[in-house]
Write a protein that binds this DNA or RNA. Structure first.
Length: 502
RNA sequence: GGCCCCAUCGACUAGUGGUUAGGUCAUCACCCUUUCAAGGUGGUAGCACGGGUUCGAAUCCCGUUGGGGUCACCA
């Protein structure tokens, strides 16, 4: 037998942003499909019209693509199994629902919301599991409603839903790729609504039909679906279809181990994008939340290609994983450290240009926006920033004059003779022909030595007047990159501002 | 509450009967150093508990506890 081509799907509902948990589900589906040489498909589950959000579909797909998860078939790019939006497949669900009705696997239910609620309350009060009481189960299916009554209601145009009839006294068993065998008693399964009164199918019904029709070989989804698996299995059985293999992923957790939610931090991928995390770091991070290569591997940094190469569902863990931002931050730094300079230049330049819309530099515009200048800034800063945008925001003194001087540092580093020293050394700097780090260092040491002072007495004040802050790259290199003109100006300005405040 | 799933350092995890229980993040100390990073070295820290099975259990079985999910005309 020729193995069929693997097909997996990510099936979000267009109700808003892409959740990081959703990103991981999509990623695992994608990795598995690509690893197996198969296809990854995006399907939109918009059967709840009331929760539909404008543009959500577009944003979902856009965000996935930003992350590097490109679908082989999707509502945006088409494919041979469309339409890929469930609201465009209504006639299909109708057709299959009729089949179920004919085969007595489903029945009309005219119960009102009030009735259902009442019933539920009663059952809860009695300590029972809330379940539909099958009041509308027709005679021919073992219930008490004669066909004529149903027909009459139908003729009168009474609103109704269609429910599946869960067989009594059976047990539903399946093998989860991640969890192994799982078993349910049919007594615990409700007669799930298949078609809602607005004519739309429920998730359970639509996804089973689509998963079959679209030819998916593997269903990889969150653990929250595990308990509805038996319903889906029953539907496959009703239709006589072979069920796809399933894998239920462990959930992503808050630091307090509850299900990952807002309130305790950001859950939208877009939030992390906005903060400046890169696709590589987020994908890498999310991939490791629940999966690892095993076999003694100690690799932490994986590219998408490597992930595809190494991924396997068998190595996905069973327990929920806490979304720990510390490690994400560390990964982001790893990527910045190793990203090619020209790539960083390309990213930083637009950020700088945007900043230049808001702030006026004193340094020559051509200079600070030039590639060679940006390359130097990157060289000095790449091991000191946590995000790409920090090349501009965290070390803005490479582009703009310091607006203030860190008070505590001034207090700590300024002695009575500091201003004089600074002034004297400025004139030495002014006379330098070669304004290089080595040369600056040599002259500074020469200047300080005969006075019996340590270089630090000048180094720290110089850094503060040059940058406004007490931390940063090597002072000598900082000065070199800034250039003589800027350095002299900043010393001058710094002396004025600081002496007036000290 | 019923049903289902899960359980190794604070976090992510390696580990599938015999290991000084390993790695990474975080944390602490030291080194490097003009600062901040980066880097280096070292440290603190874990098998939830109780029973079995076995010569021997983190590993297998049962129970307890704890956590989570789910019980909608939402997905």
């Amino acid at each position: 037998m020729v193995a069929q081509k693997v097909r997996t799907r990510f099936a979000p509902s267009p109700t808003g942003y892409l959740h990081v948990g959703g990103l991981r589900t999509a990623l695992y589906n994608y990795l598995f499909a690509k690893k197996m040489g198969g296809d990854f498909i995006i399907r939109i589950e918009d059967t709840d019209q009331s929760r539909k959000v404008e543009d959500a579909q577009k944003n979902l797909i856009k965000t996935l693509e930003w992350a590097g998860i490109i679908a082989d078939e999707s509502p945006e790019h088409g494919g041979n199994f469309g339409p890929y939006v469930q609201s465009e497949r209504l006639d299909i669900y109708d057709k299959y629902c009729k089949l179920l009705l004919e085969d007595h696997h489903a029945y009309y239910c005219f119960a009102t919301h009030e009735e259902l609620d009442e019933n539920r309350q009663l059952q809860i009060k009695q300590g029972l599991q809330p379940k539909y009481n099958r009041k509308w189960l027709p005679e021919e299916m073992g219930g008490s409603i004669p066909p004529s009554v149903i027909q009459k209601k139908l003729d009168e145009g009474e609103p109704y839903v269609i429910r599946m009839k869960v067989p009594d006294y059976i047990s539903v068993w399946f093998e989860d790729i991640i969890r192994g065998p799982v078993e349910f008693d049919s007594a615990t399964i409700d007669d799930q609504v298949l078609m809602k009164s607005d004519g739309f199918p429920t998730y359970h019904f639509a996804s089973v039909i689509d998963d079959h029709l679209m030819g998916f070989t593997h269903i990889i989804r969150g653990e929250e679906w595990l308990s509805s698996m038996p319903k889906h299995l029953l539907l496959y059985e009703f239709f006589g279809w072979e069920a796809p293999k399933v894998a239920h992923l462990p959930l992503l957790l808050n630091p307090d181990r509850s299900k990952l939610s807002k309130r305790q931090g950001d859950v939208a991928v877009e939030d992390y994008v906005r903060k400046g995390y890169s696709a590589e770091a987020i994908i890498n991070f999310v991939a490791m939340l629940g999966w690892n290569e095993g076999e003694g591997s100690e690799q932490e940094v994986y590219s998408m290609t490597q992930l595809i190469d190494k991924f396997s569902l068998e190595r996905v863990g069973k327990a929920g994983a806490v979304f720990n931002v510390d490690k994400l931050n560390w990964l982001e730094k790893q990527y910045i450290k190793n990203r090619p300079t020209e790539k960083l230049v390309a990213v930083i330049k637009p950020i700088l240009l945007a900043e230049l819309e808001k702030r006026e530099p004193l340094m020559p515009l051509e200079m600070i926006t030039s590639e060679t200048y940006l390359e130097k800034v990157i060289e000095l800063m790449r091991e000191r920033v946590g995000f790409e945008h920090e090349f501009v925001t965290f070390s803005s003194y490479f582009f703009f004059e310091p607006e203030a001087y860190d008070e505590e540092s001034v207090k700590k580093r300024w002695a009575t003779d500091t201003n004089d020293l600074l002034r004297d050394f400025a004139s030495i700097l002014g006379s330098l022909v070669e304004f290089s780090a080595e040369n600056i260092e040599a002259h500074l040491k020469e200047f300080v030595a005969p006075k019996g002072m340590k270089a630090a007495v000048l180094i720290h004040p110089l850094r503060i007047v040059a940058s406004g802050v007490s931390f940063g790259p090597s002072l000598y290199h900082l000065l070199e990159v800034l250039g003589k003109e800027t350095v002299l100006r900043r010393i001058q300005v710094g002396l004025e501002k600081i002496s007036s405040s000290v």
